[in-house]
Every structure is written in C-alpha cells, then in structure tokens.
C-alpha cells in the first residue's frame, strides 16, 4: 500500500484503455457486441477480458429480414430486458459511456 510514490499513485493516472472503463463503473454504459447486438445497462463489474456484469440491461438485436429475392432486407430490431446480466468478454466489441 505504501508504495514509494505514496498511496494512490497507482490510480492517479488513467493510462490504459480499461481505466476508462473503470470510470463508467456504476454508470450506464453502451456495449456493442458481435452478432449485431447492443446492450445498455449499468456497469457493475468488468475485468481485463472485458467480461462484464450489467444491471437493468436492455438488449437490442438487429436482424435483417432475409427475403427470398435477396437484398432489400428490412432491419428489424428486437429488444430484451434483463435485470442482471453477465456478458462474456469475447463477444464484446466496444464499451462506451452513455453520456
């Protein structure tokens, strides 16, 4: 704890990308996932693999209606709610503060 630079020196600088994610702890974040999925929810936990725990989550899934003729597929969205959600990091594309 009592490092040479004194306590708090470790976190005094935000150097790494995940330090930015830390700022969003307990804040509402926007998460983009593989497979045309997006999440919005309060960030309760994360780790270096981008594993996440989100609370009061709304998931949005974008689906293209595949029509026989091809093309002209209409994008449909489906929304799902979850009170508490663990998200495995390997699906995560980006995490953004919901400012």
């Amino acid at each position: 704890m009592a490092s040479p630079e004194g306590p708090g020196a470790v976190t005094s600088s935000v150097n790494e990308p995940l330090d930015l994610v830390r700022l969003s702890l307990n804040e509402v974040v926007f998460v983009k996932l593989r497979g045309d999925r997006e999440l919005k929810g309060r960030l309760h936990a994360y780790d270096s693999h981008c594993n996440l725990v989100l609370g009061e989550v709304e998931e949005t899934i974008y689906m293209v209606d595949e029509e026989e003729e091809g093309g002209n597929g209409e994008v449909r969205t489906m929304k799902k709610q979850s009170e508490m959600l663990f998200v495995r990091g390997d699906s995560v594309v980006l995490i953004s503060p919901q400012a």
């Binding site: 309760h44 979850s82 508490m84 959600l85 699906s91």
Partner: peptide, 24 residues
C-alpha cells in the same frame, strides 16, 4: 454469450469494489 442472473443475488456495491480492487 450471456448469463442472466438473479439481481437479488448480486451485491452490486461489493461487486464494484471488487472490480476496483481487481483493476488496481
């Protein structure tokens, strides 16, 4: 991909603290 959890089984302040510790 996801694990949907029962919210009442999660102590969010503690979890956030644990996250901060891990990050530090």
């Amino acid at each position: 991909r996801y694990v949907h959890l029962p919210a009442n089984a999660v102590d969010t302040p503690l979890l956030e603290d644990a996250t901060r510790r891990e990050a530090s």
